[in-house]
Amino acid sequence: MIFRIFEKKELKNLFEILAAHNKVVGPVEIGKDKQCNPIYAFTEVSDFNSIKLDYTTTKLPAKRYFLPFHEDLSTFRIKDNNWQKTIDYNADRPLIFFGLHPCDINALNKLDKVLLHSVFPMPYYVAKRKNMFIIGIDCVPQPFCFCRSMGSDTALHGFDMFITNLGTRYFVEILTDTAYNFLKNIKTEEPKEKDHILYMKSAAERNKKFTAKVDTTDLAKILDMEFQSDVWKQWGDKCLACGTCANVCPTCYCYGVEETVDINLKSARKTKMLHSCNLIDFAEVAGGHNFRPERHSRLKYRYYHKHRGFVEAFEESLCVGCGRCGESCLAGIKVPEVIASVRGGKKR
Protein backbone atom coordinates (compact mmCIF):
# COMPACT_ATOMS: atom_id res chain seq x y z
CA MET A 1 0.00 0.00 0.00
CA ILE A 2 1.22 3.49 -0.81
CA PHE A 3 0.74 6.28 1.73
CA ARG A 4 0.80 10.03 1.18
CA ILE A 5 -0.10 13.02 3.25
CA PHE A 6 -1.51 16.37 2.17
CA GLU A 7 -2.76 19.68 3.52
CA LYS A 8 -6.51 19.86 4.13
CA LYS A 9 -7.09 22.64 1.63
CA GLU A 10 -5.77 20.36 -1.10
CA LEU A 11 -8.85 18.16 -0.77
CA LYS A 12 -10.99 20.93 -2.19
CA ASN A 13 -8.65 21.13 -5.16
CA LEU A 14 -8.90 17.41 -5.66
CA PHE A 15 -12.69 17.59 -5.49
CA GLU A 16 -12.87 20.38 -8.02
CA ILE A 17 -10.56 18.67 -10.45
CA LEU A 18 -12.53 15.45 -10.20
CA ALA A 19 -15.94 17.11 -10.26
CA ALA A 20 -15.04 19.01 -13.40
CA HIS A 21 -14.81 15.77 -15.33
CA ASN A 22 -16.91 13.29 -13.41
CA LYS A 23 -20.12 12.87 -11.48
CA VAL A 24 -19.48 12.90 -7.74
CA VAL A 25 -21.63 11.53 -4.95
CA GLY A 26 -21.04 12.61 -1.37
CA PRO A 27 -22.64 13.05 2.04
CA VAL A 28 -24.71 16.22 2.50
CA GLU A 29 -27.04 17.52 5.16
CA ILE A 30 -30.69 17.30 4.09
CA GLY A 31 -32.39 18.59 7.22
CA LYS A 32 -32.50 18.55 10.98
CA ASP A 33 -34.40 16.18 13.20
CA LYS A 34 -36.53 17.34 16.09
CA GLN A 35 -33.55 17.42 18.46
CA CYS A 36 -31.86 19.65 15.88
CA ASN A 37 -29.33 17.02 14.91
CA PRO A 38 -28.42 17.09 11.25
CA ILE A 39 -29.79 14.36 8.95
CA TYR A 40 -27.37 13.23 6.29
CA ALA A 41 -27.82 11.58 2.91
CA PHE A 42 -25.71 10.66 -0.08
CA THR A 43 -26.47 12.65 -3.16
CA GLU A 44 -24.82 14.03 -6.27
CA VAL A 45 -22.73 17.05 -5.42
CA SER A 46 -21.03 19.72 -7.49
CA ASP A 47 -20.00 22.10 -4.73
CA PHE A 48 -17.28 21.05 -2.31
CA ASN A 49 -18.77 23.14 0.49
CA SER A 50 -22.02 21.19 0.47
CA ILE A 51 -20.18 17.97 1.31
CA LYS A 52 -20.14 17.26 5.04
CA LEU A 53 -17.00 15.21 5.54
CA ASP A 54 -17.52 15.08 9.30
CA TYR A 55 -20.94 13.49 8.81
CA THR A 56 -22.18 10.83 11.17
CA THR A 57 -24.04 7.90 9.62
CA THR A 58 -26.44 8.70 6.79
CA LYS A 59 -30.02 7.47 7.28
CA LEU A 60 -29.86 5.52 4.04
CA PRO A 61 -26.69 4.05 2.60
CA ALA A 62 -25.57 4.97 -0.91
CA LYS A 63 -27.42 1.85 -2.03
CA ARG A 64 -29.48 3.44 -4.76
CA TYR A 65 -26.29 3.93 -6.77
CA PHE A 66 -25.46 0.24 -6.85
CA LEU A 67 -28.73 -1.49 -5.88
CA PRO A 68 -31.54 0.84 -6.89
CA PHE A 69 -34.84 0.34 -5.08
CA HIS A 70 -36.55 -0.11 -8.45
CA GLU A 71 -34.82 -1.06 -11.64
CA ASP A 72 -35.99 -2.44 -14.98
CA LEU A 73 -34.19 -5.69 -15.72
CA SER A 74 -35.50 -5.72 -19.24
CA THR A 75 -38.07 -4.17 -21.50
CA PHE A 76 -40.07 -5.78 -24.25
CA ARG A 77 -41.45 -4.58 -27.52
CA ILE A 78 -44.66 -6.41 -28.28
CA LYS A 79 -45.86 -6.80 -31.84
CA ASP A 80 -48.81 -9.06 -32.63
CA ASN A 81 -47.89 -12.40 -31.13
CA ASN A 82 -44.18 -11.77 -31.03
CA TRP A 83 -41.85 -9.95 -28.68
CA GLN A 84 -38.35 -8.56 -28.52
CA LYS A 85 -36.45 -8.39 -25.26
CA THR A 86 -33.98 -5.60 -24.53
CA ILE A 87 -31.64 -5.89 -21.58
CA ASP A 88 -30.05 -2.81 -20.06
CA TYR A 89 -27.83 -2.92 -16.98
CA ASN A 90 -28.68 0.70 -16.21
CA ALA A 91 -25.13 1.97 -15.85
CA ASP A 92 -23.88 4.56 -18.26
CA ARG A 93 -21.14 6.45 -16.48
CA PRO A 94 -18.57 6.15 -13.73
CA LEU A 95 -19.34 7.68 -10.36
CA ILE A 96 -16.96 9.03 -7.74
CA PHE A 97 -17.95 8.42 -4.12
CA PHE A 98 -16.43 11.17 -2.07
CA GLY A 99 -16.27 10.13 1.56
CA LEU A 100 -17.57 6.64 2.38
CA HIS A 101 -17.09 5.35 5.91
CA PRO A 102 -15.38 1.98 6.47
CA CYS A 103 -18.69 0.25 7.22
CA ASP A 104 -20.14 1.26 3.88
CA ILE A 105 -17.01 0.17 2.03
CA ASN A 106 -17.10 -3.17 3.81
CA ALA A 107 -20.76 -3.46 2.93
CA LEU A 108 -19.80 -3.26 -0.73
CA ASN A 109 -17.13 -5.89 -0.17
CA LYS A 110 -19.75 -8.18 1.30
CA LEU A 111 -22.15 -7.57 -1.56
CA ASP A 112 -19.30 -8.32 -3.96
CA LYS A 113 -19.05 -11.78 -2.49
CA VAL A 114 -22.57 -12.75 -3.42
CA LEU A 115 -23.34 -10.49 -6.37
CA LEU A 116 -19.98 -10.38 -8.11
CA HIS A 117 -17.74 -13.29 -7.11
CA SER A 118 -20.20 -16.13 -6.67
CA VAL A 119 -22.00 -18.23 -9.27
CA PHE A 120 -24.34 -16.28 -11.54
CA PRO A 121 -22.81 -12.84 -10.97
CA MET A 122 -25.41 -10.14 -11.28
CA PRO A 123 -24.54 -7.80 -14.15
CA TYR A 124 -26.85 -5.03 -12.92
CA TYR A 125 -24.71 -4.75 -9.80
CA VAL A 126 -21.39 -5.50 -11.47
CA ALA A 127 -21.91 -2.80 -14.11
CA LYS A 128 -22.38 -0.18 -11.42
CA ARG A 129 -19.77 -1.52 -9.04
CA LYS A 130 -17.05 -1.60 -11.70
CA ASN A 131 -17.77 2.03 -12.37
CA MET A 132 -17.34 3.26 -8.82
CA PHE A 133 -14.31 5.21 -7.73
CA ILE A 134 -14.31 5.29 -3.94
CA ILE A 135 -12.66 7.77 -1.64
CA GLY A 136 -13.02 6.45 1.88
CA ILE A 137 -12.88 8.65 4.94
CA ASP A 138 -12.45 7.90 8.62
CA CYS A 139 -15.33 8.48 11.02
CA VAL A 140 -16.19 9.09 14.64
CA PRO A 141 -17.94 6.06 16.13
CA GLN A 142 -21.49 6.81 17.24
CA PRO A 143 -23.20 5.13 20.20
CA PHE A 144 -25.06 2.80 17.84
CA CYS A 145 -22.03 1.70 15.78
CA PHE A 146 -20.97 -1.89 16.45
CA CYS A 147 -18.86 -2.29 13.32
CA ARG A 148 -15.88 -3.21 15.47
CA SER A 149 -17.66 -6.34 16.67
CA MET A 150 -18.39 -7.25 13.08
CA GLY A 151 -14.80 -6.69 11.96
CA SER A 152 -15.88 -3.84 9.71
CA ASP A 153 -14.41 -0.86 11.55
CA THR A 154 -11.55 -0.58 9.11
CA ALA A 155 -11.54 -1.14 5.37
CA LEU A 156 -8.62 -3.02 3.87
CA HIS A 157 -9.82 -3.12 0.29
CA GLY A 158 -12.79 -2.17 -1.83
CA PHE A 159 -11.80 1.50 -2.20
CA ASP A 160 -9.45 3.46 -4.40
CA MET A 161 -8.09 5.77 -1.72
CA PHE A 162 -8.85 6.30 1.95
CA ILE A 163 -8.24 9.53 3.81
CA THR A 164 -7.82 9.96 7.54
CA ASN A 165 -8.12 13.29 9.28
CA LEU A 166 -4.93 14.11 11.17
CA GLY A 167 -5.95 17.61 12.29
CA THR A 168 -4.47 19.96 9.72
CA ARG A 169 -3.66 17.33 7.15
CA TYR A 170 -5.10 14.20 5.59
CA PHE A 171 -3.26 10.91 5.61
CA VAL A 172 -4.12 8.92 2.52
CA GLU A 173 -3.89 5.22 1.66
CA ILE A 174 -3.73 4.64 -2.06
CA LEU A 175 -4.96 1.34 -3.44
CA THR A 176 -5.32 1.88 -7.16
CA ASP A 177 -3.22 3.48 -9.86
CA THR A 178 -6.24 5.55 -10.88
CA ALA A 179 -6.21 7.13 -7.44
CA TYR A 180 -2.44 7.53 -7.61
CA ASN A 181 -2.74 9.41 -10.89
CA PHE A 182 -5.59 11.57 -9.63
CA LEU A 183 -3.49 12.56 -6.65
CA LYS A 184 -0.77 13.83 -8.96
CA ASN A 185 -3.09 16.79 -9.53
CA ILE A 186 -2.67 18.06 -5.98
CA LYS A 187 0.29 18.64 -3.68
CA THR A 188 1.05 15.56 -1.57
CA GLU A 189 4.08 14.42 0.39
CA GLU A 190 5.66 11.25 1.59
CA PRO A 191 4.49 10.77 5.23
CA LYS A 192 7.24 10.94 7.84
CA GLU A 193 7.70 8.83 10.95
CA LYS A 194 5.89 11.47 13.03
CA ASP A 195 2.92 11.29 10.67
CA HIS A 196 2.77 7.53 11.18
CA ILE A 197 2.72 8.11 14.91
CA LEU A 198 -0.04 10.68 14.52
CA TYR A 199 -2.02 8.25 12.42
CA MET A 200 -1.67 5.47 14.97
CA LYS A 201 -2.64 7.80 17.76
CA SER A 202 -5.76 8.89 15.94
CA ALA A 203 -6.69 5.27 15.28
CA ALA A 204 -6.22 4.42 18.97
CA GLU A 205 -8.37 7.41 19.95
CA ARG A 206 -11.10 6.22 17.61
CA ASN A 207 -10.99 2.70 19.00
CA LYS A 208 -11.77 4.01 22.46
CA LYS A 209 -15.02 5.50 21.23
CA PHE A 210 -16.75 2.24 20.38
CA THR A 211 -19.44 1.50 22.93
CA ALA A 212 -22.00 -0.81 21.26
CA LYS A 213 -20.95 -4.44 21.06
CA VAL A 214 -22.17 -7.74 19.72
CA ASP A 215 -20.75 -11.03 20.88
CA THR A 216 -20.38 -13.03 17.68
CA THR A 217 -18.63 -16.03 19.22
CA ASP A 218 -20.23 -19.20 17.90
CA LEU A 219 -23.18 -17.10 16.79
CA ALA A 220 -24.08 -19.25 13.79
CA LYS A 221 -24.32 -22.29 16.01
CA ILE A 222 -26.25 -20.49 18.73
CA LEU A 223 -28.80 -19.28 16.21
CA ASP A 224 -29.36 -22.90 15.25
CA MET A 225 -29.69 -24.02 18.84
CA GLU A 226 -32.07 -21.24 19.77
CA PHE A 227 -34.23 -21.65 16.68
CA GLN A 228 -37.27 -22.43 18.82
CA SER A 229 -36.45 -19.86 21.49
CA ASP A 230 -39.29 -17.73 22.83
CA VAL A 231 -37.28 -14.54 22.50
CA TRP A 232 -38.08 -14.53 18.80
CA LYS A 233 -41.78 -14.32 19.63
CA GLN A 234 -41.12 -11.37 21.93
CA TRP A 235 -39.33 -9.48 19.17
CA GLY A 236 -41.96 -10.57 16.65
CA ASP A 237 -44.68 -9.00 18.78
CA LYS A 238 -42.95 -5.66 18.39
CA CYS A 239 -41.98 -5.85 14.76
CA LEU A 240 -44.17 -3.80 12.41
CA ALA A 241 -43.13 -5.84 9.38
CA CYS A 242 -42.39 -2.58 7.62
CA GLY A 243 -39.17 -3.51 5.81
CA THR A 244 -37.36 -0.37 6.94
CA CYS A 245 -34.48 -2.36 8.40
CA ALA A 246 -33.73 -3.87 5.00
CA ASN A 247 -34.18 -0.62 3.12
CA VAL A 248 -31.68 1.24 5.30
CA CYS A 249 -29.24 -1.66 5.39
CA PRO A 250 -26.18 -1.30 3.17
CA THR A 251 -25.90 -5.07 2.74
CA CYS A 252 -29.49 -6.24 2.16
CA TYR A 253 -29.88 -7.14 -1.47
CA CYS A 254 -32.91 -9.42 -1.85
CA TYR A 255 -35.65 -8.52 -4.27
CA GLY A 256 -38.86 -9.35 -6.05
CA VAL A 257 -39.57 -9.23 -9.76
CA GLU A 258 -42.74 -7.94 -11.31
CA GLU A 259 -43.73 -7.89 -14.95
CA THR A 260 -46.08 -5.24 -16.25
CA VAL A 261 -47.67 -4.48 -19.59
CA ASP A 262 -47.75 -0.83 -20.57
CA ILE A 263 -51.23 0.49 -21.09
CA ASN A 264 -50.70 0.95 -24.83
CA LEU A 265 -50.11 -2.84 -25.03
CA LYS A 266 -47.09 -2.21 -27.25
CA SER A 267 -44.43 -2.59 -24.61
CA ALA A 268 -43.85 -4.38 -21.34
CA ARG A 269 -41.21 -4.46 -18.66
CA LYS A 270 -39.70 -6.64 -16.02
CA THR A 271 -38.88 -4.70 -12.89
CA LYS A 272 -36.76 -5.66 -9.95
CA MET A 273 -37.77 -4.15 -6.62
CA LEU A 274 -35.77 -4.49 -3.44
CA HIS A 275 -37.80 -6.46 -0.95
CA SER A 276 -37.41 -7.33 2.69
CA CYS A 277 -37.72 -10.66 4.39
CA ASN A 278 -39.79 -9.01 7.12
CA LEU A 279 -42.62 -8.32 4.69
CA ILE A 280 -45.60 -10.62 4.82
CA ASP A 281 -45.39 -11.89 1.24
CA PHE A 282 -41.67 -12.67 1.19
CA ALA A 283 -42.13 -16.44 1.17
CA GLU A 284 -45.72 -16.69 -0.01
CA VAL A 285 -46.39 -18.96 -2.97
CA ALA A 286 -49.22 -19.54 -5.43
CA GLY A 287 -52.44 -20.55 -3.76
CA GLY A 288 -51.64 -18.41 -0.74
CA HIS A 289 -49.43 -20.78 1.24
CA ASN A 290 -46.93 -18.77 3.25
CA PHE A 291 -43.77 -20.40 4.51
CA ARG A 292 -43.30 -17.65 7.11
CA PRO A 293 -46.71 -16.34 8.04
CA GLU A 294 -45.76 -14.95 11.45
CA ARG A 295 -43.79 -11.79 12.07
CA HIS A 296 -41.42 -13.55 14.42
CA SER A 297 -40.54 -16.24 11.92
CA ARG A 298 -39.68 -13.58 9.38
CA LEU A 299 -37.65 -11.51 11.81
CA LYS A 300 -35.81 -14.64 12.84
CA TYR A 301 -35.09 -15.42 9.22
CA ARG A 302 -33.54 -11.97 8.83
CA TYR A 303 -31.01 -12.82 11.54
CA TYR A 304 -30.61 -16.23 10.04
CA HIS A 305 -29.67 -14.91 6.65
CA LYS A 306 -27.28 -12.35 8.04
CA HIS A 307 -25.55 -14.16 10.85
CA ARG A 308 -25.78 -17.77 9.82
CA GLY A 309 -26.45 -18.38 6.13
CA PHE A 310 -24.00 -15.80 4.89
CA VAL A 311 -21.40 -16.95 7.39
CA GLU A 312 -21.79 -20.50 6.18
CA ALA A 313 -21.31 -19.43 2.57
CA PHE A 314 -18.65 -16.74 2.90
CA GLU A 315 -17.07 -17.08 6.38
CA GLU A 316 -18.39 -13.69 7.47
CA SER A 317 -21.74 -12.24 8.38
CA LEU A 318 -23.93 -10.06 6.20
CA CYS A 319 -23.83 -7.18 8.66
CA VAL A 320 -21.24 -4.47 8.98
CA GLY A 321 -22.59 -3.13 12.26
CA CYS A 322 -23.44 0.33 10.95
CA GLY A 323 -26.44 0.41 13.30
CA ARG A 324 -28.73 1.99 10.71
CA CYS A 325 -31.46 -0.64 11.06
CA GLY A 326 -31.73 -0.16 14.80
CA GLU A 327 -31.73 3.62 14.51
CA SER A 328 -34.51 3.60 11.92
CA CYS A 329 -36.65 0.87 13.45
CA LEU A 330 -39.63 2.54 15.07
CA ALA A 331 -40.14 -0.53 17.22
CA GLY A 332 -36.61 -0.13 18.57
CA ILE A 333 -35.43 -3.53 17.39
CA LYS A 334 -31.64 -3.30 17.46
CA VAL A 335 -29.15 -5.96 16.40
CA PRO A 336 -27.01 -5.91 19.57
CA GLU A 337 -30.06 -6.35 21.78
CA VAL A 338 -31.65 -9.05 19.65
CA ILE A 339 -28.45 -11.06 19.53
CA ALA A 340 -27.81 -10.61 23.23
CA SER A 341 -31.32 -11.85 24.00
CA VAL A 342 -30.91 -14.88 21.76
CA ARG A 343 -27.59 -15.67 23.40
CA GLY A 344 -29.26 -15.29 26.75
CA GLY A 345 -31.71 -17.93 25.57
CA LYS A 346 -34.68 -18.76 27.74
CA LYS A 347 -33.38 -16.86 30.73
CA ARG A 348 -34.84 -13.63 29.44
Partner: peptide, 9 residues
Protein backbone atom coordinates in the same frame (compact mmCIF):
# COMPACT_ATOMS: atom_id res chain seq x y z
CA UNK B 1 -29.73 -13.59 -5.75
CA UNK B 2 -33.30 -12.74 -4.74
CA UNK B 3 -33.25 -14.79 -1.48
CA UNK B 4 -36.94 -15.59 -1.83
CA UNK B 5 -36.34 -19.35 -1.99
CA UNK B 6 -34.32 -19.66 1.21
CA UNK B 7 -35.10 -22.47 3.63
CA UNK B 8 -33.47 -21.57 6.90
CA UNK B 9 -30.55 -19.96 5.20
Amino acid sequence: KCCRCNVGS
